[in-house]
Write a protein that binds this DNA or RNA. Structure first.
Lengths: 329, 329
DNA sequence: ATCGGTTTCGTGAACCTTCACGATACTCAC
DNA sequence: GTGAGTATCGTGAAGGTTCACGAAACCGAT
């Protein structure tokens, strides 16, 4: 466990002062070429490497970092959001550290707290849980509302997209609407509760509603739930799947069983994954404005930075969704 | 621009010493409950937040961070690697910061240098370029070999997978082999050069080689190149696509033009993306062992940490590939 | 009143770098 | 040789926290 070599070690070995070492290392002026070469050689020889902590300690100008915690990095939904967040963050001069918790996102906040200035992510727990886990760091909730001091949020308004989808489906001749909801849409007691998108969808469908089932939030879960829906309500000619992953399963099931999509039944997903572009038929989807989500998030984050990350009252933004009409509906 | 509130401010406001504030903040012992409550209240009131830099400056124990720089975060190939890297890194107690450069990966190393202890990524530039960009930080190249001091690498051995694929294709009756290579496989002068996987494939195909074309590394590029290949060599009954994305395009093209896959032509991709599982027919692919890649990378990174990130001679690992036989071949 | 033991709190130092400013040395002209 | 002007280098301080250790206060017992 060799002691770390510091700037003083280099200075002593090269027979100069710390400041001269700094000048040599950072390519500053006020130093002769011969000295610079000698110092650089010495640093190289000793394996000197400036401590990023000590450096940032004094350079407290603008090296901000945000931490993104996602439930799973294997879910394309999260990676696409991460991609947009990362690119917008980069543009605005923010570093981004990530952590993935294959489970409750709250649990993996801890590993980030010493690395970043603010936490961003999809969380299911309450604000209180969040505040406890974040150790005082401000938190930005994605797609759910935060109300407590220091918990901010970017919400997602799916209603307009759902309404738009239903009327577009009607315009193409759909008459019997079905919905596959997610089993993981739960209330505080852990019981299944209709998701908001289901409620809006059923409202929009009105008396043309054929029926609804629930399924797991995976491709296989979507396929299975879709099959049950068609079995229970064979007259269904338009289905809203909880998300694109499940919609993918529905399309696969239809294909495997010779059910024409969109001829026999129209399928609409939610999320607007670019994955939906790669399958056949290309997935129609209610897309969230991911870039908007990202820039709203960074608006908040910038605002927090301006307030020196103090506990300012909750800031809220909302992003709208819009219909991405492709081939499956 | 309010000055940042430090531990001393809190101490003064609460009428105690810095150390007592630390004790209160970190839940340490040797402090009475009343004092702790008072200090905590004061800290809350002033909005005190420990500086993560100052904290890590003294805690030089084991808060290591690695930086991952990927060319594009929208390419599922990179996100899947990032996912595995992230999960293995998490298991081993490493933080991970990411940067995406929509272009040359070398260019976006800079933003990470002050944040991490080591850089990991796919790079095309030379070791010298890399060392210059990294500012002395050790670098781990993925899927290409580094030779200079301080540049390490995890290489990918595709040969066994390619050979395995060809013999598996033969066993199913394939007799005329074609290959779609990537246009972006270039030599130092920027001219197209057959990729290693093409060379291996053509070696394995021997005199059963029908022909080869090149295309862009996208879904559309794959579709187009595939079409050209079939036009020039209609007898082709088995095609190796440069990667899964291009293979996806080939499958789509075949589907759109009524070409049976794998009946009329068998299609094999490279990478083993989980995306290939979601399409129909499921993509047969020469998969790299991504988890192996990740754990090899972290082996190296751990080794570098043990050496205090000094410039140790190049470390190399290699991961093998294996055939993932699904439905498209 | 004194003593030993425990609890609570404070002081000096370390961590490592960079910034601001002052000090020295060197150059050249007069 | 003296002066101004410039090139080169060094010193004190700051940045915010935690660790090691020592000091004070408290408490019941003798």
């Amino acid at each position: 466990m060799s002691k770390r070599v510091t700037i003083l070690d280099v200075a002593a070995a090269a027979g100069v002062s710390r400041q001269t070492v700094t000048r040599a290392m950072n390519g500053m002026s006020d130093i002769s070429e011969t000295t610079r070469a000698r110092v650089l050689a010495t640093a190289e020889r000793l394996g000197y490497r400036p401590s990023r902590f000590a450096r940032n300690l004094v350079n407290r100008k603008k090296t901000h970092a945000m931490g993104l915690v996602v439930a799973s990095f294997r879910n394309p939904y999260f990676t696409e959001i991460a991609a947009d967040l990362l690119s917008v963050a980069g543009e605005r001069g923010w570093q981004m550290a990530m952590a993935a918790s294959e489970g409750r996102a709250e649990d993996s906040i801890g590993v980030l707290t010493n690395q970043v200035d603010v936490i961003v992510g999809h969380f299911t727990g309450s604000d209180a849980v969040l505040r406890a886990a974040s150790g005082g760091l401000p938190v930005v909730r994605l797609e759910s509302r935060g109300t407590e001091l220091g918990v901010h949020s970017v919400e997602l308004d799916l209603e307009s997209g759902v309404v738009e989808a239903v009327s577009a489906l009607r315009a193409r001749g759909a008459r019997r609407f079905g919905m596959v909801d997610s089993t993981s849409s739960r209330n505080a007691l852990g019981e299944y509760t209709p998701s908001l998108r289901r409620i809006w969808f059923e409202q929009a469908a009105g008396d043309q509603l054929a029926g609804g089932v629930v399924g797991e939030e995976t491709i296989a879960g979507g396929a299975q739930a879709f099959a049950r829906l068609l079995e229970a309500h064979p007259e269904t000619d338009a289905v809203l799947m909880f998300n694109d992953l499940m919609a993918l399963g529905a399309v696969q099931h239809a294909h495997a069983h010779g059910i024409d999509v969109p001829g026999r039944v129209r399928i609409v997903g939610v999320d607007g994954l670019s994955l939906g572009e790669a399958v056949d038929p290309r997935l129609t989807s209610i897309a969230l404005d991911r870039l908007g989500l990202a820039s709203h998030t960074l608006d908040i984050v910038d605002e927090l930075a301006a307030a020196d990350f103090a506990d300012v009252p909750s800031i809220h933004r909302a992003v709208r969704s819009k219909l991405l009409w492709r081939d499956s509906a």
